[in-house]
Amino acid sequence: EESSVGQVDIPETDATIIRVSFNQPESNPQFIALEEMGKRFNERTDGAYEIVIYPSELLGAQRESIEMVQVGAIDMAVIVGSLMENFVDEFAVFNLPYVFYSKEHQMDVLQNQDIVADLYSSVEDGGMKVLGAFHGGVRNVYNTSGPIETPADLNGMKIRIIDSDTNIQMMQRMGGAGTPMGQGEVYTAIQSGVLDGGENNELIYSNLSHAEIAPYYSYTRHLMVPDYIIGSTNLINSMSDEHQAIFMEEIQLAIDHQVDLFDSEVEQAIDTAVAAGARFNEVDIDAFQEAVSPVIENMLKTPESQKLYEDVQSAALPYR
């Protein structure tokens, strides 16, 4: 165990430091992938750049981190997809329920420049650029009382969701009552019965020990929201062409690395959760998919969104 105090080691160096704001702890696969990318990037640029990642919201929450990147106060951040909707509506398409069939389908779309190039560059006016996207896990419903198999099973249950209108509508269609709440309060709220459960990927479900209090984890697979890596335009423009090329290459490698790491992390998380009493069950996904389809229609208002949604669906053919 390192004995150094404070969560970040800032190197004494002549290199240009690239500062990254990150919301999860250091154990997260995204952190690990970015950190190793930093080491490789440092080597390949002969020490011109050094990446320092601030974990656990040390520099601020994700929405605020976007603004820090825009200002140029920091250089990079990892941002959940739902926040990108606040800048450009079309990002919402990738956050719709059941829009991706599998992790492979999702990563295929997120890396397909024919589909995403316009979207990723659409925020450049705001002083930032989307450099790529991590897999952010698959969100499933968990609760205190029993396995969920159909939307009727969720009837009357208060399920904690991330605060957004789409999410509230979605949970209502799925049968439950979506209750937005800060993650810090969720454990006690479930324990005391204020909430009946939550929805999240296996990693967070296990890390937050929610298995102890809400042991029924049902694979509704309703959301697969990407996490975007954003960088300030200042950072990218200040790099030489050669360094820029290496940088983008390394970002791609980091994403591939994270996707590989993710599966084994999920397996470990499941083991931990099972040891804490969790029971995992499969679900009638078709019923849920049908239930939430009006939400999708509601969200696809602009021609651009519809086009994007169609592109995603055609890319799904090999994965069905």
Partner: peptide, 15 residues
């Protein structure tokens, strides 16, 4: 707090 986190002043003071 942001200045302290950004520059890691706690580590400096700790040492």
């Amino acid at each position: 707090s942001w200045v302290m986190a950004f520059t890691n002043i706690p580590a400096l003071l700790a040492s």
